[in-house]
C-alpha cells in the first residue's frame, strides 16, 4: 500500500484541475506545488545536510527577478526565466557558499539571513535595473490556471524525484554524514565543503526555479514580496519542519498544510464564522469572525510552537507517533 501512495497522489493531482473547475482552488493548489519545490530545496540543504538556511528568499528572489528582468529589459517571454532562473540562483549561492560554508550551525544560519536582507536591499536600491519598489509587472500568458498548474506540478515532481535520486546516491550518504557529524565525516576523508556546496546549489537551483514560476504565475514581483524574510525564507523553513525534516515527502505534506492553514485563517475558516454569525445574527460571533480573520499570523505562530514541541520531526517524520496517538492501543496490532 505504502509503495503505491506516491503514484496514487500523483494521479489525484493530475486529475485535480479536470475535476475541480473552480479556479480559486486551483490557485491554492498551484501555491502548494510551488511550496513543495521550495520546501524540497530547503530540505536538501537543511534537512539532509544539516545546514539550516534562513536565506531561501535570496535564491527565490533571484530566480523571480531573472524571469522578470528577461521580460522587462530584454522583451523576451518571462518563460525564458524558467530556463535561467535556477542557474542565476546558483550564481548567487556559489560565492555565498564558497565564503560562508566555513561557518557552522547557527552562524551559517545567521549569515544566510544576512544574505537574504542584503539581496532585498540591493533590489530596492538599484532602481535602474530592478525598478525598485515599483516592482515588475508582466501580463500572465494564460488566463486559465491549468497550464500553470501542470507546469508547477511538473516542477514539484521533478524536485521530489531529484531529492530522492540524490539521496539514494553516494552524495546522499555524504550529506547525511555531514549532518550527523561534520568532524567525523571530515576525518573519513569526505570533502565536506565540496559536498555542502553541491547540496546548497541543488537547493538554490530548485528555489530559483520556483521563483521564476512565481514571476510567471503571479505576474508581479517587488523586492518585499520575493526577498521577504518572513513570507519566503521563514515560510520555507516552516514547510520543511511542519512536514518533516529530512524526509522526501515532508515538504509535500508541509506545503499542503501551510498553504491551507494560511488561507484558512485569512478567510476566517472560509467564512465559516462569518456565515454562522450571519445566520444566527449573534453579536458575539461577528466579533469572533472579525478576530479570526485577523489572527492568521497568530495561528501560524501557535502552529509553529506546537509543532516543534509535539512533533519535532514534523508530520511525516513523526507519522508513527501520530498514528499511535490516534489509533487506540487495542487496534494497534491489527492496524499494522
Amino acid at each position: 500500500m505504502k509503495k503505491y501512495a506516491p503514484f496514487v497522489l500523483l494521479a489525484i493531482l493530475i486529475a485535480f484541475p479536470l475535476v475541480v473547475q473552480n479556479s480559486y482552488y486551483q490557485h491554492l493548489l498551484i501555491l502548494v506545488l510551488m511550496w513543495v519545490v521550495i520546501g524540497s530545496g530547503w530540505n536538501m540543504i537543511a534537512g539532509y545536510t544539516g545546514q539550516v538556511s534562513f536565506g531561501d528568499a535570496a535564491f527565490f528572489g533571484t530566480g523571480a527577478y531573472t524571469a522578470g528582468l528577461i521580460a522587462s529589459k530584454l522583451g523576451l517571454s518571462a518563460w525564458w526565466g524558467m530556463a535561467f532562473g535556477g542557474f542565476t540562483a546558483m550564481a548567487v549561492a556559489f560565492p555565498f557558499g564558497w565564503i560562508c560554508f566555513r561557518l557552522r550551525g547557527a552562524y551559517f544560519a545567521l549569515a544566510s539571513l544576512a544574505l537574504n536582507e542584503i539581496c532585498r536591499h540591493i533590489a530596492t536600491i538599484w532602481e535602474d535595473l530592478t525598478e525598485g519598489m515599483a516592482g515588475i509587472l508582466i501580463m500572465p500568458t494564460f488566463l486559465s490556471k491549468i497550464p500553470y498548474y501542470y507546469i508547477a506540478l511538473a516542477l514539484a515532481v521533478l524536485s521530489v524525484v531529484m531529492v530522492q535520486i540524490v539521496m539514494n546516491s553516494k552524495w546522499g550518504y555524504y550529506f547525511l554524514s555531514i549532518r550527523e557529524d561534520q568532524d567525523a565525516a571530515e576525518s573519513l576523508g569526505i570533502d565536506t565543503h565540496h559536498y555542502k556546496m553541491i547540496s546548497l546549489n541543488i537547493a538554490a537551483f530548485l528555489t530559483g526555479m520556483a521563483g521564476s514560476l512565481f514571476m510567471n504565475y503571479m505576474g508581479f514581483i517587488d523586492p518585499e514580496v520575493v526577498f521577504s524574510l518572513h513570507d519566503i525564507s521563514i515560510m520555507a523553513i516552516l514547510v520543511g519542519i511542519v512536514g518533516g525534516v529530512g524526509t522526501v515527502y515532508g515538504p509535500v505534506v508541509g506545503a499542503f498544510v501551510m498553504v491551507a492553514v494560511h488561507e484558512f485563517f485569512r478567510t476566517g475558516f472560509f467564512g465559516f464564522f462569518k456565515g454562522l454569525a450571519g445566520l444566527t445574527g449573534s453579536e458575539f460571533l461577528i466579533v469572533v469572525a472579525k478576530y479570526i480573520g485577523q489572527a492568521h499570523v497568530l495561528g501560524f505562530g501557535i502552529l509553529v510552537v506546537v509543532v516543534i514541541l509535539v512533533l519535532p520531526n514534523g508530520i511525516v517524520g513523526d507519522w508513527n507517533k501520530i498514528i499511535r496517538k490516534l489509533v487506540p492501543m487495542k487496534n494497534k496490532g491489527v492496524a499494522t
Binding site: 537543511a46 544560519a109 509553529v304 516543534i308
Partner: peptide
C-alpha cells in the same frame, strides 16, 4: 529531533 536549530525556529514562532 534531527535539527539542533529547533530552538531557533521556536523563537521565530
Amino acid at each position: 529531533s534531527i535539527l539542533p536549530e529547533n530552538q531557533v525556529l521556536m523563537t521565530v514562532g
